[in-house]
Write a protein that binds this DNA or RNA. Structure first.
Lengths: 352, 352
DNA sequence: TTGAAAGCGCTAACAA
DNA sequence: TTGTTAGCGCTTTCAA
């Protein structure tokens, strides 16, 4: 039994059509077919349209490996997130996937699980896969040596012609989409102050993350304007997770019993805070107000509905993808997002 | 001008070394270098070790596009989901990404936004990208002609040597991970019956989805055992989204005012149902019980905490990836999951 | 055991 | 405007 018989016999599977198949069917040469499909100069409009319709009819999609090898760019973007199961990142991914799809790109997603070492490994992997662009989402590190390796690898990739954008990191020499962490921090802290709260505790994420520091800076700025110094406002750091939120809440209740408002630096932590308060039967917002940050989709459905700062996550993912799909800029661009304070049921006037 | 000058001139960024560079440096032929690096027969152990050390010293990584084009397998899996922003799917993706990473594979994720037509297009795209495996998550269609094209493309891919697994679809001739939709439906309906509810309404997702029909079959079976016929239990279909849940809830309140329990066929819909009841000031579970399905992470934090059927989404994603990464089976395998009824605060005794 | 050379499917320089 | 053809970097026969 010959290999051919096995592969192309009547029972055999149809392999994806190649450019040569399209060309043959359309009655043109390989080069013409290629030009028509890529929309290059030098093909009459009618012929080009004909080739395209033939290709569409056959369900033809170029083999990206051949395309890449032949010198074209790969229409695959790598998206690096901490954890795709986290709604903050899945909403970013959703926006990115949408824009990618609209432009005929695919997206390869990788986890890092919040380890700078993994970031470097993932970037290397994406480079080895010769992706055309890399989008890295998630906070930077306060100590830049933590991300030096990843940064360097990203710049090498960029210098070699790859496109790069980061979401939520400043001080990297590449395009960036920057959520308004500081402004949001000011807004939500201002909201608590306006409600009369003075004994506010912060449930913060890991202190080595710039996102935490930026949000904190905004919060502290607002507090300082109200005459509350850093010493007056305890900051309890834990993981940026529901468990971390629970942990912070317990420590706040134990060490700072007079607290009337907990400001969690993301919604996932706020969820954990609320769960502890519910278990202890502490009324929210009657006895304790709780606010979050991000406005993930479920924030509005928590018990009680969470007051938080809305960041346009899906738009951020979409914007990052647009940055890397568009022409390479002469110098790094920044796209800053706005924020919206969403006042719901978890915050109320300070008791007393 | 030598090739070397061109490649390593001071002006351009260093391009990754190629196999031929390794071969040259090691003083062997291309073929020998390839064999040594891939651990194939026919190279003396010493030579092989030498080649490998030279390659390692140069930081050589094979160009996967060239490898793929030359007939190797790509260690990239395609994962097709309806919408990555939906927690059901992002949890599946999380499990899949973890297993892929552990095995040196990458994952390319695509959206279909619940359109059978898009499924076919995505499978074609993944095939054209020559992924080594495809995992398709999400419900099948009751009318098989809706998915005939996608199914056929998937089988073609499989017959051509690709690995395929589906999550949540039966009647496809490939490996499958099957959540216990029917058993879960029985369990949650049984729970409502045990609480004394007899006027139960179902907030169902689109009726053309097999997931909806399977869950419904379980529910109806339990209801029938309790003497409740199909006619006695209104089924209100809407989108499998929060909005769909809101829509169903409004229709149930309007058309079936005596209802004491709403059974939503997924948690996202249940979330919408709860939000309507909250807006109307209807006490849950005092006047109306609500139950969901899936147990997405936030179910426990809703107001009130949602009684639901837990499905191990992350494990399902992980299991699907293990199926496609392992050796090809002689015949399709099924991995069925269990379910766990999570009784929380949204269900209580029937009023009256 | 080793090497030479023919592809894999595509792009782009060069010819016609 | 269209076609011919030489690579891109690798794997894998087939020869030596």
């Amino acid at each position: 039994m010959s290999d051919d018989t096995h592969r192309e016999g009547p029972a055999g599977p149809a392999r994806p059509p190649r450019l040569v198949d399209v060309a043959q069917r359309a009655g043109v040469s390989l080069a013409t077919a290629s030009r028509a499909l890529r929309g290059r100069e030098g093909v009459s409009p009618e012929l080009a349209a004909h080739v395209r319709s033939v290709a569409a009819g056959m369900g033809y999609v170029a083999n990206p490996h051949a395309t890449t090898l032949a010198g074209g760019v790969t229409r695959v973007a790598g998206l690096i997130v901490y954890e795709i199961g986290d709604p903050y990142f899945s909403e970013i991914a959703s926006g990115a996937l949408r824009v990618a799809g609209e432009n005929g790109w695919s997206v390869q997603i990788c986890h890092t699980e919040r380890a700078p070492h993994a970031e470097l490994a993932q970037i290397r992997l994406l480079r080895a896969h010769r992706v055309g662009a890399i989008v890295m989402a998630g906070s930077g590190y306060v100590d830049r040596t933590d991300e030096a390796g990843a940064h360097r690898e990203l710049l090498d990739f960029q210098d070699a012609g790859g496109r790069v954008a980061v979401i939520g990191r400043h001080h990297l020499r590449c395009d960036a989409v920057l959520p308004d962490n500081r402004g949001g921090g000011e807004a939500v802290a201002g909201h608590l102050l306006a409600l009369g709260h003075r004994r506010i505790a912060i449930a913060a994420g890991p202190e080595h993350l710039t996102t935490v520091q930026d949000r904190l800076a905004g919060v502290r700025h607002a507090l300082a304007l109200a005459g509350l110094g850093t010493a007056a406002v305890p900051v309890v750091s834990a993981d940026f997770t529901r468990e971390g939120g629970r942990d912070s809440a317990e420590r706040i209740l134990r060490d700072h019993p007079g607290t009337t408002a907990v400001l969690a630096l993301n919604d996932t932590m706020a969820t954990g805070v609320l769960s502890v308060l519910r278990e202890r039967g502490i009324d929210v917002p009657g006895r304790m107000s709780v606010a979050g940050f991000d406005d993930v989709q479920v924030a509005q459905d928590l018990a009680p509905a969470l007051t938080t700062v809305a960041l346009p996550m899906a738009d951020m993912g979409a914007a990052a993808l647009r940055l890397v799909l568009g022409p390479a800029p002469a110098r790094p661009r920044r796209r800053t997002t706005g924020h919206r304070l969403m006042v719901r049921d978890s915050t109320g006037p300070a008791p007393g």
